[in-house]
Amino acid sequence: MSAGAGDGRSLAEWVTLALSLLVIGTLVTVAVMEQSRLEQQEGPGLTVIFDADHATRRGDSYVIPYAIRNTGSEAITSAEIWFDVLEGATVVESAEIRVAFLPLQGTQRGIFVTTHDPARYALRDRLESLQIP
């Protein structure tokens, strides 16, 4: 009996090989599709979402949950973002938030503590700098 891949192969071996090719083929297909999708996006990008609806009051301060999401086409090794509290067009409070590392579509969650009531004041984020690998 041959030891080659052809004539001596049993049904069990053919099925195993087919499943193996399916596993690897799926991975390769996902890679090609992801590469194509990322190439259509415009470089690195971050999105900040303030969850003011779930802000809580602790003494004189307000604790506001936020999420920073990497919505760009590359991983981010670090970033600096400013959070501003606005009264009309005037900035009444600012804080710098640092992002250590965010993979593609990765999210960093945290809380922003301010002395201003988010129900009365507006919140804004400003990307100051961003580093990519």
């Binding site: 030891a3 080659g4 891949a5 052809g6 195993t16 090989l17 499943l19 193996s20 090719l21 596993v23 690897i24 991975l27």
Partner: peptide
């Protein structure tokens, strides 16, 4: 549990890689 020769080595390596991925 057999000696692989020729194409059998190629397909065995495919199966080993798939097992590793799983």
């Amino acid at each position: 549990r057999r000696v692989a020769r020729g194409w059998a080595r190629v397909t065995d390596a495919v199966e080993a890689l798939a097992i590793a991925i799983l």
